[in-house]
Nucleic acid binder design. Structure first.
Lengths: 205, 205
DNA sequence: TGTTCATCGTGATAGGTGTCACACTCTGAA
DNA sequence: TTCAGAGTGTGACACCTATCACGATGAACA
């Protein structure tokens, strides 16, 4: 795939080096790309599709943290990779997805030699850290109704559509809540004309 | 202050460079070191004391994320500093504290020249990221009783004592809860012989 | 000593959320 | 067409937590 345009800031040398060493890989929607406790051997760059990064609870709950789209990288894989540590998160393809996997052995070299790579890594850290902060804000300070609104907005952003193809159950899972609660809150939002509800589909106003 | 022993991994050159350029600074317990929205001009290394990193809510709540002790650095200040961005968090001295402030102009140089510094930065990112993840876990999956236990354990860890000098109100603030709730839960813990309660003091079993 | 103030204990109450139960609708496959 | 299963709507109820109210206790200080 022609991925260079996703990273216009990379120097030709850097692109060539990645080209020579990285492996391109495809996942189908729903595939688990990385699971908690797994060793990390590569840094992951997303070329196409969407990856969902979430936290899993031993006694059966999950909690969405954020999405990764084209041009973004998994901060965790960068950090862990540099120390060959295990992942603390789950990553799952939300749509059919193409990624570029860069072996960890290359990381230090890239960091030292290419300023644009170094900047990219720092930017990635910063971005994910900020997202985590806003996640913390949401669960620490907001009730479920506000969290739901935030969730829907983000979902719309990532897909770029106003018709969200998603079930109440999926939302409940992502927010670590229950379907009934989400259904009721959505109903309220519909009464306030914030959304229109269809089967397996939510239309944002 | 003789701070080099806190960072035994740093090369002599690196230590000298920091020595020449960094500024040492003291804060009293309770001083606010950094506030939300403030521009960051230095990376902060903690030499002595404890710094509390927390999130503030516009409509009046706060939420403790983690502590920084001697030998640790503020990941946020590193990330922000590299792009001269504003802080998204509050930092407050929990005890009387000594820090070393390294001007951001130096950061890139340090990163490029000194492997030990580079490793230190990566380690810092990793550490704070992990702490944020466990924070998310706690508020997403746990009830207040478990969060309280976690809080007390962490508080004991940081101070290294079993007698915690802290009021119920302070705990409530850190957990974004209310004093009454904390008091009741502590009472329950006392009935289970997990703690002994004294005035302004909690004794861990 | 007596007053003041922070701290702590505890009941009553209300709201948010999770859970159970059950009915209804829509869709896709047999 | 029929049927099974997924998705949804809704009531009843329990539990956790926030809030209000008020009193008791202990520490600091005039």
């Amino acid at each position: 795939m022609n991925w260079q345009q996703l990273f216009p800031q990379f120097e030709p040398d850097l692109i060539q080096l990645i080209e020579d060493n990285a492996v391109e890989r495809s996942f189908r929607a729903g595939d688990v790309i990385m699971r908690t406790g797994q060793y990390i051997k590569s840094t992951v760059l997303v070329l196409e599709g969407q990856i969902k990064i979430y936290r899993e609870n031993p006694d059966g709950g999950e909690f969405l943290m954020y999405y990764l789209g084209p041009g973004q990288a998994c901060a965790i894989s960068m950090i862990c990779a540099l120390q060959s540590q295990t992942s603390e998160i789950m990553a799952q393809a939300e749509e059919d997805t193409e990624v570029l996997m860069i072996p960890i052995q290359l990381m230090e070299d890239l960091m030292n030699k290419y300023k644009s790579w170094y900047q990219f890594v720092i930017q990635t850290y910063r971005g994910r850290f900020d997202e985590l902060l806003s996640v913390v804000d949401n669960i620490a300070f907001r009730n479920m109704d506000e969290r739901l609104e935030f969730y829907l907005k983000r979902y719309a952003d990532k897909s770029g559509k106003k018709m969200l193809e998603i079930s109440h159950q999926q939302i409940a899972d992502d927010l670590n809540s229950s379907r009934e609660v989400i259904s009721r809150l959505l109903k309220k939002m519909e009464q306030q004309s914030l959304v229109k509800l269809h089967r397996n589909m939510i239309e944002l106003a």
